[in-house]
Each structure stands twice: as structure tokens, then as C-alpha cells.
Computed example of a mutant assay.
Amino acid sequence: MQFGFSTNAFREYDLAESIEAIADAGYDGVELLFDEPHLYPPDASEDDYDAVRRALEESDIAISNGNAFMLTAIEDFHHPSYVEPDPEYRRERIDYTLAALETAAELEIPYISIEPGGPIPEGKSREWAMDRFVDALEEVADRAEDVGVDLLVEPEPDLLIETSGEFLDLLERVDSGRVKCNFDAGHFYCVGEDPAELVDPLWEYTDHYHLEDIPADRTHEHTQLGDGAMDIDAFLGELEGRGYEGYVTVELYPYEETAIQTANEAMDYLEERGWT
């Protein structure tokens, strides 16, 4: 398997600096944040794409994923979502995702990770939110088919799709092979599931994995590898046992103030445990 590191921890650096630092730390891939201050798809130009290609070539590193989850360019990590009560505000998330698919295609990224619906709005039922999310997915999946890029729904605590079961239920309602899973090991651990045990049932739907550690109380707090309570070795062992050759991207966005040190220490952990 190959390891990447997400630039969402490097929001105090420009994208070229982030790519260079992640490559210098020894990673195989870099996850591009499709948001300000890095590469925001609705505003991306050919010059921006050329700059990304140049930075990747100079650092001899590949792209592990296009992160189209966070949306601070408009509001925050979770808003606007696919399940906003205001249809115009909801439209902003859909249009952003359509632009993200075009950006991924331009950079030859085979998939993007996306929000699992969003927080269920106050006063709305889960069923209402699911209907809105399915409608949105059906629209963006058509564009995904056209450009040849997969949509990886990333289950997350406290959002519409939290668990592996809820993700599999979603797939029953969406008629597109382009809709798959961004398997975030820490997120599943937070909601009481064992990431190692989920590798098998989600295997055929998973293009990409996120990795971080999580505290023993399962609080949704992305924690440096080895500083939490997850059995990271068991999880990575399941992937290795299946001959996984894709990317596992370390996602430690809370560590903005120490991004370079954090990336290096996460790689040190992986090396010491014999995973690289």
C-alpha cells in the first residue's frame, strides 16, 4: 500500500509549499484540499492546474485524493451541505461538487471524497434528509459518469451517514457505480465500529482510505498516530493481507500550527511499525 498526507493540515502554507513538505517527509502521495487557501474548484484556472502539476513533478509525488469535503470558501466544514433546507444554499454544495469533479478530471485524479449528506437540519426528519441527499447524488453522479471520476461518500459522526450500515443502505438507493466509499478508519471507530472488521464488507466499494488515531473515549478528534486508542496495526494489516496497492492518506487537519512536524512524526510512526 501507499501512504499520503492531506494538505488540510497545511492551511497556513500555500499549496506548493505543502506538496514539497509532504514529499520531503517521505509520503508517496498528497491529498489536495479542494478549498481555500489551496485549490478551490469553482475558481481554479489553467494556471492553477499547471502550478499543481509543476509542484508535483518537482517533488516527485503523486495525488492520493481530491478532498471535496471541507467548504470554508463559502462557510465551514459542513455547510452548505447536500441537505440544507434552503434549496438555493443546497445548490451551492451541489455546484461546488460538480466543479470538483471537473478539477479532478483535469488533474487525472480518479476520485474525490465528499460530505455524507451533512448535519440533519433542525425540524427535518432523517427521511427528508436522505431524500435530498439521494437527489443530489443522482445529479452529481451523472457528471461523475461523464468525466470518469468516482464520488467517495465519507461517513462521519453526527452527519447523515455515520456507519457502515447506513452507507450500504445509501448505495441501495443510488443507481450509479461511481458512488463509492471514502473509508475513514477513525470515523468508523468513533461510532463504535471496528475499522479492521469493516475492510471486508466495504472492500468492493472503497477506492481510498483515511487514517488518523482517535482517543479512547471515541471522541471525534483526529489525533496523531499512536497517541490514541485505535488498533492501527490491525487495520493496516487487513489492507496488507488483501494486497491493497492504493492510498491510505493520513488526515490530521487539527494540527495546523505544527503541520510539518506532524507529517514527519506520522511518517516516523509508520516506519517504526514497519508499514513503509
Rank of each mutant, 00 (worst) to 15 (best):
E162V: 02
K180R: 15
A141F: 05
D169H: 06
G165I: 05
L160F: 09
G177W: 07
E156N: 10
I161C: 01
F133N: 04
K180M: 10
E138P: 00
L151G: 11
E139D: 11
P155H: 07
L152C: 15
E166C: 02
R178T: 13
E162K: 07
A144N: 00
V140R: 09
I161R: 12
V149H: 08
F167Y: 14
E139Q: 14
V140E: 02
L137C: 08
E138S: 08
V179M: 08
L151F: 01
R143W: 02
D146V: 12
G177I: 02
G148S: 09
G148P: 08
D150F: 12
V147Y: 12
D146W: 02
E156K: 10
L160C: 06
E162M: 05
R143E: 09
E156C: 03
D150I: 01
V134T: 12
L170P: 04
G165S: 14
E154G: 07
V140I: 15
G148N: 09
E166V: 00
E145H: 13
V174N: 07
A136N: 11
E156A: 08
E139Y: 00
L170F: 11
L168H: 09
K180P: 01
P155A: 06
L170I: 06
E166F: 01
P155M: 08
L152K: 02
L171T: 11
D169E: 15
A141N: 07
L159Y: 00
S164L: 01
R143A: 14
D175L: 06
D175K: 06
L171N: 04
V179R: 02
R173L: 14
A144S: 15
A136S: 15
V134F: 09
S176K: 02
D150H: 14
V149Q: 10
L152E: 12
S164K: 12
T163K: 08
L171R: 14
R143H: 11
V140W: 06
R143N: 03
D169Q: 13
V174L: 03
